[in-house]
Design a protein around this nucleic acid. Structure first.
Length: 971
RNA sequence: GCCGGGGUGGCGAAAUUGGCAGACGCACUUGCCUUAGGAGCAAGCGGAGUAAUCCUUGGAGGUUCAAGUCCUCUCCCCGGCACCA
């Protein structure tokens, strides 16, 4: 037998597979004449950006994962589409072109060639006949076409607005591309610049993008992150009429103006003490003439404009604002006149750009009101504050084992003690804490608590001295599903029962009985957060409760009257989203030209579809300009065109699309990549879409993944695609970090070059290692040493061939098969299941165990070995193929073999190992028939010498027998 | 602050969902084989202890015959969002 030599095996099979077009998906029509269409599987990975750095080991991780799934699906009889392409437009290529003077097309060609070579060296089963390239005019023709459709439907529009401007990259950024006020790519602080920009109205799809997440099989964390980003919230729009002081008569006159606010808490309407507008709110200009301090207001607005995005949005920064003196707003609920302010803590582009301020119940309003000494009026009372109607009755059987928690306040300092204890809690509390007039003595001395019968006492703060019981406590009934919370003082207890409280006492005591397990949350959240807050009276109460000081709504519950109070105030119930429209233009060269023409007479005219693509012209200088114009603007020959409508003088749009454009629909092109008449034929789209399984990075959740869902929905609406969602299932992989746990980056010099690894240990070992190194969805640091483990594993699989010694195979086959059948069938089951759950690491360890077991045999059954190879083939396609065809002399590829199935009867153990525990500790084990009854197991367990030893003289109280698993003897 | 995900040997990690904690792999130790070993084989490998035995899944408490797993509190790490009314 030859030693395992990956450098011969891998290129050999790669060539053969390429010749045979092994990964090529069958076109659906080929199968149609036979009757039913073959079931299909469309597996997708995020197509790479062909950077000059070459393939990253992270690409290999996600590509291998989907390669394994694709290979398994093929062998399960699916017609599989596992395509690859290039997300070729983008800044890095352009920057490289600027530096070197090479045309981006040349750079892209070179980089994609390198990527292609690298991907092929890893044996991925891509369908290479369907490569797409977003920078290819034949491709971006359709990107531009989609843009024109968006334009036609009014979803693409131009708007003058403040955009995020990166002064280093000289480019406008979408909100999604700004991280912590900095440019996503270069980390430079982003500035605001007013510019006319192309926008895409993704907000028109906000509701559907949110709602339809219900129908897709995305990882929950992906859904949550998208939902957070879309930021749907329901609330009320309420209009306040504006009244201005008459400058001549000093009396108030109503104006035609009014301000509409958005609030999720209309229940606090009676607590409004002022109104705040965003400085950018258009209403401010028209109100200015009514104000007495117009200059001051203008100054404030000017200052707010200058402030950077970071300063503006820093929640920790002190809030500032200016009152619009001379005008007031009328609260529609109670007719009250409240002052109107402008302040930059109110965002112009969320809700209505105006809020009603309720300082008692909103922490931001609270901070602002404190600073400017605006009134604070409480209108919500926590439920238990005024519930004297709920008091314990005499017959309530409070168990003496009730668990009691209490908050204890220091008499003079702002310090609190939290105690909890059980057993005689009520009695102890009264006698120990009150009747003896013990003030729980010195804080920090838990001995005292224990002496007086308090157990499990615990201090939150152990400094200070002389604590006393303040008031709040909570009791959990031991036997019944009842809980009690009390505030104010302690009520009297005799013989561990509640005694009715007198009317006088009622006023001192706020007690509520809760009949649900939620009482526990009540303690943890209300007791700790609320009580802490309220006792100190230093912040707003943002929870629910009963309304007070609220006219006819007083006494009602805050959650139940939201809509009622909205209606009462003449408001309407609406939905709002945090999502903003997508800033779609970039002032750079290397992107799709936006296909519109600006005519002096006709305005903005779309380029006729027959004239697509609008090709990128050749330029000498790709450099972006300081004035924020695209380098394309300098090419007068290209820019100056005739208007397609009136043939008059016109100019081309010189902005280009962001690189998210081409990637928003590339998966559709895979269905029919060469189509010249449409993005893809309806038949191809009907057969292949939606994508069945899409794996990618979490970092694309709010960018690429959301954008492409938006475009897909739009294409669905105009009848181009047959489904409303592009992806059935979305999973994500964890990043591969450098050895120290840092991100791999060229500047740090810690990038792993996969070429070197493929050369030294081979693609199969690298693939296996990347799948074995840890859970697929978790980030993991690269460990050079780890690869030797998977390399050794492959070598062990290789050496197992020796145990198939030709003459003995037949003779030993049946006997060998008998002993290892269970092992192999269990392995088949586990590996099959693990692949589906992307638990590749445990799938591999299962195969390792199988190999370890087979190595112990003197002769290995061929069928067992073949099954093992079949399971391993998707992970290590080269070595398994080599053994399969060369050693085992099969004429066809192992990758065309049916996926092995397991026999459930062979998995069932005939013998089970029973663990014997004494008092919950493992003391012995024995083997018995899997069908043994509980009595038999118990009998056998009690006979064991170890068991006898550990039971000793002690009487056996109880024996628990779990069939096939455990016996626990309680003594 | 809010929303996610984590915390288990020297390291990467397993744990059939409440039933032998540490599978599998790396590193390490000892031995065999070898001219040699960054090869292979055999044995060992959480901590303490000569041992019997005891301790051990970030920490504290609880439920249970039995807890890494369930409940409560708490600390730390990573990711996302963040003045969104």
């Amino acid at each position: 037998m030859q030693p395992y030599d990956h450098s011969k095996i891998e290129p050999k099979w790669q060539k053969k597979w390429e010749k045979a077009q092994a990964g090529k998906a069958k076109t659906p029509s080929q199968k149609k004449n036979g009757g039913d269409e073959q079931k299909k599987f469309f597996g997708l990975i995020e197509f790479p950006f062909p950077s000059g750095d070459g393939l990253h080991v992270g690409h290999i991780r996600s590509n291998t994962a989907m390669d394994i799934i694709a290979r398994k699906r093929r062998r399960e009889g699916y017609n599989v589409l596992y395509p690859i392409g290039w997300d070729a437009f983008g800044l890095p290529t352009e920057n490289y072109a600027i530096k070197t003077g090479l045309h981006p097309t040349v750079v892209t060609k070179r980089n994609t060639d390198n990527f292609r070579r690298q991907l092929k060296s890893l044996g991925f089963s891509f369908d290479w006949s369907r490569e797409v390239d977003t920078s290819d005019p034949k491709y971006y023709r359709w990107t531009q076409w989609i843009f024109l459709q968006l334009l036609k439907k009014g979803l693409a529009y131009k708007q003058k607005m403040f955009i995020n401007w990166c002064p280093k990259d000289l480019i406008g950024l979408a909100n999604e591309e700004v991280i912590d006020g900095k440019c996503e790519r270069c980390g430079t602080a982003v500035e605001k610049r007013e510019k006319e920009q192309w926008m895409l109205a993704i907000t028109k799809y906000a509701d559907r993008l949110d709602r339809d997440l219900d129908d897709v099989n995305f990882l929950e964390k992906i859904k949550i992150q998208q939902r957070n980003w879309i930021g749907k919230s329901e609330g009320a729009e309420i209009t306040f009429k504006i009244t201005a002081g008459d400058k001549k008569s000093d009396s108030n006159v109503s104006t035609a103006e009014s301000v509409t606010v958005f609030t999720t808490r209309p229940d606090t309407l009676f607590g409004v003490t002022y109104i705040v507008l965003a400085p950018e709110n258009k209403l401010v200009a028209s109100l200015l003439s009514h104000t007495k301090n117009a200059d001051e207001i203008k100054k404030y607005i000017a200052e707010a404009k200058i402030k950077s995005e970071i300063q503006r949005t820093d929640a920790g920064a002190e809030k500032t604002g200016v009152e619009l003196r001379g005008i007031t707003a009328t609260n529609p609920a109670n007719g009250e006149q409240v002052p109107v302010w402008i302040a930059d803590y109110v965002l112009a582009d969320y809700g209505t750009g105006a809020v009603m301020a309720v300082p008692a119940h909103d922490s931001r309003d609270f901070a602002f009101a404190k600073k400017y000494r605006l009134p604070i009026r409480q209108v919500i009372a926590p439920y238990f504050e005024n519930t004297t109607d709920l008091i314990p009755k005499k017959d309530l059987p409070i168990s003496k084992r009730a668990i009691v928690h209490a908050i204890v306040k220091h008499p003079s300092q702002d310090k609190y003690l939290f105690i909890s204890w059980k057993d005689h809690a009520w009695n102890s509390l009264i006698t120990g804490g009150i009747e003896n007039n013990e003030t729980l003595a010195e804080a920090g001395k838990r001995e005292i608590l224990e002496e007086t019968g308090y157990k499990n006492a615990r201090f939150i703060d152990t400094s200070g001295s002389s604590w006393e019981i303040h008031s709040y406590f909570y009791a959990e009934h031991k036997n019944e599903n009842r809980y009690m919370v009390a505030r104010g003082a302690f009520f009297q207890l005799e013989n561990e029962e509640c005694v009715e409280i007198t009317e006088d006492e009622k006023k001192k005591h706020d007690i509520v009985w809760l009949d649900a397990i939620k009482a526990r949350d009540f303690l943890t959240h209300i007791n700790q957060k609320y009580i802490w807050d309220i006792i100190q009276k230093e912040s707003a109460y943002e929870g629910d409760g009963k309304l007070i000081n609220s006219g006819k709504f007083t006494g009602r519950s805050s959650q139940e009257i939201l809509k009622e109070i909205t209606e009462f105030a003449g408001g309407k119930w609406v939905e709002k989203f945090k999502l903003r429209d997508w800033i779609f233009s970039r002032q750079r060269y290397w992107g799709e030209p936006i296909p519109v023409i600006h005519c002096e007479k006709c305005g903005t005219v779309p380029v006729p579809e027959k004239n697509l693509p609008v090709k990128l012209p050749k330029v000498k200088n790709y450099k972006p300009t300081e004035n924020g114009e695209s380098p394309l603007a300098a090419i007068t020959k290209w820019v100056n065109v005739k208007c397609p409508t009136c043939r008059g003088k016109a100019r081309r749009e010189t902005d280009t699309m962001p690189n998210w454009a081409g990637s928003s629909w590339y998966y559709l092109r895979y269905a029919d990549p060469k189509n010249k008449k449409a993005i893809a034929s309806p038949e191809a789209l009907k057969y292949w879409t939606p994508v069945d399984w899409y794996n990618g990075g979490m970092e694309h959740t709010t960018l690429h993944l959301l954008y492409s869902r938006f475009w897909h929905k739009f294409l669905f609406d105009i009848g181009v695609v047959p489904t409303k969602e592009p992806y059935v299932k979305r999973t994500s992989h964890g990043l591969i970090l450098a050895a120290g746990g840092e991100k791999m980056s060229k500047s740090k010099g810690n990038v792993i070059n996969p070429d070197a690894t493929v050369t030294t240990v081979g693609a199969d070992s690298l693939r296996l290692y990347e799948m074995f190194m840890g859970p697929f969805d978790q980030h993991i640091a690269w460990d050079e040493n780890g690869i030797v483990g998977t390399r050794r594993f492959i070598e062990r699989v290789w050496r197992l061939q020796e145990k198939l010694a030709t003459a003995t195979i037949i003779a030993t086959d049946t006997t060998a098969a008998g002993t290892k059948d269970t092992l192999i069938h269990k392995t088949i089951k586990k590996v099959s299941e693990d692949i589906e759950e992307m638990r590749f690491n445990t799938a591999i360890s299962t195969m390792m165990i199988a190999v370890n077991e087979l190595e112990k045999e003197t002769a290995v059954s061929i069928s067992h070995y073949e099954n093992l190879l079949k399971l391993l083939a998707p992970f290590a396609p080269h070595v398994t193929e080599e053994i399969w065809q060369t050693t085992l002399k099969h004429k066809t590829s192992i990758h065309d073999e049916a996926w092995p199935s397991y026999d459930p009867t062979k998995i069932a153990d005939t013998i089970s190992t029973i663990i014997v525990q004494v008092n919950g500790k493992m003391r012995a084990s024995f083997e018995t028939s899997a069908t043994a009854t509980e009595n038999e197991i118990q009998e056998q367990a009690l006979k064991l010498p170890e068991t006898i030893k550990w039971i000793g003289e002690k009487p056996v109280k109880k024996i628990i027998v779990v069939k096939g698993k455990v016996v626990n003897i309680v003594v």
